[in-house]
Every structure is written in C-alpha cells, then in structure tokens.
Amino acid sequence: MLGEGIIQGLMETARNFFGSYVEKERLVTVQFPEERRSLPEATRQFPFLLYDGDDPERGLRCVSCQICEKECPPRCIHIEKSKDRKPDFVGKQQFYPAVFNIDVSVCMSCQICVEVCPFDAIRMDTEFELSTSDRFGGLLWTKRELARSNEYYRQIHPTEAGECDERRAKELADAQAKAAAAAAAAAAKAAQAAAAPAAASNGAPGSGAKSEPAKKVVTQ
C-alpha cells in the first residue's frame, strides 16, 4: 500500500519521542552547564608540569632533558635549560628548566609529550573551560602556569597517579638501598683502611664523597 512506509517511519519517530520520557537510552542529552557529566579518567586536554611537595619552583620534576620538545608533533613546547643544577627526588643533581613554555593555541592534545617523558614530569590535564580574552599571552603558558601538584594529579587521574607514585617510591627505595650499600661498602673500606694505616690517605676522600648522596636522601 502506498504510504505504508511513511506510516512505519512515523511510528518509529513516535516510539522514540514517547520513549524518551521513560528510557534513559533514548534521551542522552544533559543541560550543560547546569548539569555536568563526570569525565572519564583517561580524558586529556592540555599538558601540565608536575611538582613534588608544595613549592612549584623547587619541586618541579622536569629535568629539562628536552625530549618532549623534540618529539612534540606541532612543536609547541619551548624549553631553556638552566645553568646550575638542583637535586631531584633521589638526590641526583639535575638541570631544571629555566623557561618552559607551552603554546596551547598550537598544542593538539596528542599526549606524545607524556608518553616520551622518562621522568614522569608532564601529564595531561582534564580542564577544558580555558577561554581567554588574550589571544597570544593568554594562550602561552609559562612554567608557573603549567605547574600542578602531585595531589592534583592524584585527584584527576587516580589510577595513573597511583602507578606513577608506586614506581617512583620503588625508584627512591632502590636509590636509598644503593646509597646505603655504597655507604656500607665505604665504611667497610674505611675500617679496612684504618686497619692498614698505610692506605688511609687514599681511602678517606673517596668514602666521604660516596656517603654524601645517602645523607641528602635522609634529610629530604
């Protein structure tokens, strides 16, 4: 019969219209911004820099290795290496970024910087309401604007942050164990040296240098 197909189609429309009152499957929209859906944990928007402790300047994990700068597909990261060094979380002396800028008007949120970072220093934020009236300065984020605490990271990506913390704790423990072993070895050597007075002048400075990192770890 002519018109049967049209009627059939209208029945589907009616089913969907009335169904939307009872079935959640058929009505998936929410009234943004009054109503908000929670974002999945893996969501990524723009990168941020992680710092430990509560000083964004001192605790910054970035060691200015510039891998992300080289790997970034649209080249939106600009890093200038520091002249001096500061100790990282295991007490090793490392450079830090004197300048770390990300041009978020160029960034395409691909997460490659996060994947290539060997120091767990850069991660993706979930914040997406970032409009600004300043087209150039407002979209060029400096080191200070990029820095976020580890607590914040734990809040937005709990699973990922948990794994990251675990890995770093293990690294720290390994470093401490290594330093302790080195210190023990040095102490043993010193004891040996003390036993043989002739070798004492050679052994003492070496053992002193080796025990230094271990001391640092303890103080941190």
């Binding site: 018109g3 049209i6 189609g9």
Partner: peptide, 9 residues
Amino acid sequence: ALLRSNEIL
C-alpha cells in the same frame, strides 16, 4: 524502519 521503505525516499 524509519525510512527504508519510505515511498518518497
């Protein structure tokens, strides 16, 4: 079913 057998389509 919405439009497959719709005569106009």
